[in-house]
Write a protein that binds this DNA or RNA. Structure first.
Lengths: 119, 119
DNA sequence: TAAATATATGAACAACTGTTCATATATTTA
DNA sequence: TAAATATATGAACAGTTGTTCATATATTTA
């Protein structure tokens, strides 16, 4: 039951100037997604704990499981996500993999995040 | 088929000193969850776009839908999440609600996040 | 006060996420 | 080289999330 005016914009509350202006400086789709992906990665309490622990010193998977309270398998899965997001790196020493933070962005983000939490 | 030593810790790779030390300075469960919740809130590209738009100026729901490309209903749902996390506030003017950022933590977090993205 | 407008909200549903369990891989040790 | 150890990975499953669609609410206008 299509009407003749189907394609007419039915929104009336738009402030055209504002929309035009904001649109011109809008974040692009890919950047928005990339930014969302980082935050998504930080948006899990297990991963928060792993990163927080690694802020103190490098740790092996076993140690990370012990301090975070998660199973070694769960930790391993989460470490892969952190690796993919370039948040952690590791070095091997025999059978043991020692994980550490890849850079200090995490620390800065945590500090800012905590500032919001404790507003 | 329970063994007599079932409760014995079967993990052998733990570095006790490290674990003890890191545990002593560990983030607590509630804080970890609260921190994860903020990041989780920032971990969606629609919400990223909404916040990014609001970094420029206050906007009504219609405008936010226009600049973000999401439906008004979707925007409204997302704004509720942002409100609950105390990231945005609004003022009413007649039928129209104007949303704006509640404080500047978002801007700082975005800047840091983007720095990581463009590492 | 009825209609129109701007926004909010609940239900439903598909897509995604985190954990567990079983198994695989890599390294060392016996 | 076989067994043990440390970690990784895939499948499965429950829980969560974001959107849509229908409907409700609040405000203004006729």
């Amino acid at each position: 039951m299509k009407t003749e005016f189907e394609d007419r914009c039915d929104v009336q509350c738009i402030h055209e100037e504002n929309v035009k202006e904001v649109r011109a400086n809008m974040i692009n789709e890919d950047t928005a997604r990339a930014l969302a992906d980082i935050f998504k990665t930080l948006g899990d309490s297990t991963r928060i704990k792993l990163l927080f622990a690694l802020m103190q010193k490098e740790l092996c998977v076993c140690d990370l499981a012990a301090v975070s309270g998660a199973s070694e398998s769960a930790v391993s899965h989460q470490l892969r996500i952190l690796r993919n997001q370039k948040l952690v790196k590791y070095r091997r020493e025999g059978k043991i993999l020692y994980y550490s933070l890849l850079d200090d962005h995490v620390q800065t983000l945590f500090t800012q995040g905590l500032e919001h939490v404790n507003e």
